[in-house]
Amino acid sequence: MVYINYSLKSKYIKLNISLKEKTLFSIIVPVYNVEKYLDKCLASILRQTFKNFECIIIDDGSPDNSNAIIDKYVKLDQRFKVIHQKNMGISVARNAGLDIAKGEYVVFVDSDDYIADDYLEKFALKIADTDADIVICGFIEDYKDYEKNKVFTAESTEVIKQNLLADVWPSYVWNKCYKKDLFGDIRFPIGMVYEDLLTIPAVCLNAKRIECIPDKLYYYNRQNVNSITAQKTVKKLYDLFLGRMKNRRLAVERNVDCLKALDKIIVKETMKCLFRQYNDNELFEAQEQEICASLKERLDKSEINGLRNRFWVKMLLAKRKKLCAWYARFRGYC
């Protein structure tokens, strides 16, 4: 039960009873090779103070001992369900969970992370108070020897959408609760590294109301060196570029005022991608040309500020590969 203060206590007791009867949350947990962290993740879900949930675990062909840990929780509590599939990647796993989710609201938890005991309860209370389509909470980045805290506040839903599209706020799929209907036919793209970036902004644009809660309720594991995004390659940077460009098109189509901020990020990351490409040569020629065309467009429109930036953009577009490869190593891009 939640204790906010004495005057509001009876209101929240009634609210909790009502929510427990009416609101079902679907928690989607994709699993691959995380036996070191998985028990802590699932235990945090089992401890939820808000009890009306289903936990859909997608075993994405894990070759380690993750299966045994999953089976323990499925036998322990009927709210835990498992889908076994051959290894097809995190996007396929999340999509599989979405396709069978019965909850009115869905949340995603990565299997090497964990959540606060009142994670769902805080979401449910905010939804009951505001009828929000999406609720965003703060999170803690858990490093080996220290932590970083991130909390989000905004004056309106429109500002939140601007922040997510321009990546002022990270468009992680976790640390958010979504009304399931917002996804419609939107699904995570298969074979892409930054699948969150290519999905969550579009989902958020479908929301009529987005709310934030100041509590830090999600624990993001920064210690897992095997995480997909732990090491950036040219291919990953290219996927990031595609995500940024998709969000730019969405901003134009939906008339979201964030292009100036988004273009600065696109220029910076496009340059970094080309520097690494000229050092590692991993992209196809058509992909390289696509990136160059975007950078040239921004150079022609004078969207690139600073003499040094303009100089290096011209070197990149002129394909001064040896010079650019040296600069990439000098700046630690490789």
Score class of each variant (00 low, 15 high):
F25L: 05
F25S: 02
F25Q: 03
S26V: 08
I27L: 07
I27C: 03
I27R: 00
I28R: 08
I28W: 06
I28Q: 01
V29W: 00
V29L: 06
V29E: 00
V29D: 00
P30I: 10
P30N: 12
P30K: 09
V31I: 04
V31E: 05
Y32H: 05
Y32M: 08
Y32N: 02
N33G: 09
V34K: 10
E35L: 01
E35Q: 05
K36Y: 04
K36S: 09
K36G: 04
K36F: 06
K36D: 09
Y37V: 00
Y37W: 15
L38I: 02
L38E: 08
L38Q: 05
D39P: 12
D39Y: 09
D39T: 03
D39G: 13
D39R: 14
C41V: 00
C41P: 09
L42S: 10
L42Y: 13
L42V: 05
L42A: 12
A43K: 08
A43C: 06
A43V: 07
S44G: 08
S44E: 06
S44H: 07
S44A: 07
L46C: 08
L46V: 06
L46D: 07
L46A: 12
Q48C: 11
Q48S: 15
Q48M: 13
T49K: 13
T49M: 12
T49S: 14
T49I: 14
T49W: 01
F50M: 10
K51V: 07
F53W: 08
E54T: 15
E54D: 15
E54K: 14
C55M: 01
C55W: 12
C55Y: 11
I56L: 10
I56N: 05
I56S: 03
I56K: 01
I57Y: 11
I57L: 10
I57P: 01
I58Q: 00
I58K: 01
I58E: 02
I58F: 01
I58N: 00
D60E: 09
D60G: 06
G61N: 06
G61C: 08
P63E: 13
D64C: 11
S66T: 03
N67K: 14
N67C: 14
